[in-house]
């Protein structure tokens, strides 16, 4: 029977490299991840707890810090739902209907990804700022946009604009319109078709998009920093407050606040992994049926 055993060198898969190459590749990847991802994360938490638990919670309960946390939550609470509505509407239109200018709209949705956040903030300053196009009119009617909550929300919505739509469009396109056609042929109205057929088919992808959108909304720095004016206790979001504290050499307080953002990132990552593991097929759209 010994002659029936295939020679050893042929046992290796043709697309697999030798053990040395594998170990080197994995080591490089791990070292890189440790250097740029894990090490900074550890630093954030060690710095944050540098003065002990008491100092940590004291820094978080400072009025300015609390105001920054509240503002960040408000901004996310408004801009995320806004982009859910927009993302659903846009991806429904793009995936299920044919219309003139469709590819232009698709490009437009991707625009915030390719524009520097600082520029997106500046655009709103040029539009709504005191010297801006609508500045005079807004001033006359006593409406504050720049250096106030509306400006911060506008900038955040702009930056997080693509997240939901980008998740939904490919999935909806792949699912096609047959189920929707079945629903209307059975007498369902457009709204009921959306509610009972379209939405349940994309719910996990939608949740995934919301998660990414929320993480970005809470963590956005560039665009918000241009429009916020950085008024302490008023228009400082968490990332802005972290920067201010850090620049004042108050690194324990800065890192305490930063640790909250890092926790948000970890939580997002965990939820994202669970979603991908549990509903991966229904998020990416490779739906076997």
């Amino acid at each position: 029977m010994a002659e029936a055993t295939p020679p050893k060198h042929s046992a290796r898969d043709v697309t697999t490299e030798g053990p040395v190459v594998r170990v080197v590749l994995i080591a490089i990847a791990l070292a890189f991840a440790a250097l740029v991802l894990i090490l900074p994360l550890i630093v954030v938490f060690t710095e944050a707890f540098d003065g002990g638990l008491g100092t940590y919670f004291a820094s978080l309960s400072q009025p300015d810090a609390r105001s920054a946390i509240r503002l960040t939550l408000i901004v996310a609470a408004i801009s995320v739902p806004a982009n859910v509505v927009f993302g659903l509407a846009a991806s429904w239109a793009i995936a299920k209907f044919e219309f003139w200018g469709k590819s232009f709209l698709t490009t437009l949705i991707d625009l915030p990804f390719s524009v520097s956040p600082v520029i997106s903030g500046l655009v709103y300053v040029l539009l709504f700022g005191a010297q801006g196009i609508f500045g005079g009119w807004l001033d006359a009617h006593d409406i504050d946009i720049i250096f106030a909550l509306p400006g911060i929300i506008l900038a955040t919505i702009f930056v997080t604009f693509p997240f939901v739509a980008r998740e939904l469009i490919p999935l909806m396109q792949e699912q096609g319109t047959e189920e929707e056609e079945a629903a209307v042929s059975l007498g369902a109205s457009g709204w009921k078709t959306f509610l009972f057929v379209t939405l349940p088919n994309v719910k996990w992808a939608l949740l995934y998009g919301v998660l990414l959108c929320n993480a970005r909304a809470m963590g956005e720095f560039g665009a918000v920093s241009v429009v916020s004016g950085k008024i302490r206790g008023m228009t400082n979001t968490m990332p802005l407050q972290v920067e201010i504290l850090y620049n004042e050499y108050n690194s324990t307080a800065a890192f305490a606040l930063a640790s909250l953002l890092a926790l948000l990132a970890l939580l997002t990552l965990a939820l994202k992994t669970v979603l991908e593991w549990r509903f991966g097929d229904r998020i990416t759209g490779a739906n076997g049926h």
Partner: peptide
């Protein structure tokens, strides 16, 4: 519209609602 015509349409690839049970699919209309 297709809603007003009251026709029963059967699709080549069935187009059943994946997230509904058989009974819910049949009762949908």
């Amino acid at each position: 519209s297709v809603r007003e015509r009251n026709v029963g349409f059967v699709f080549q690839h069935y187009a059943l609602f994946k997230h509904m049970t058989v009974a819910e699919n049949i009762g949908f209309g």
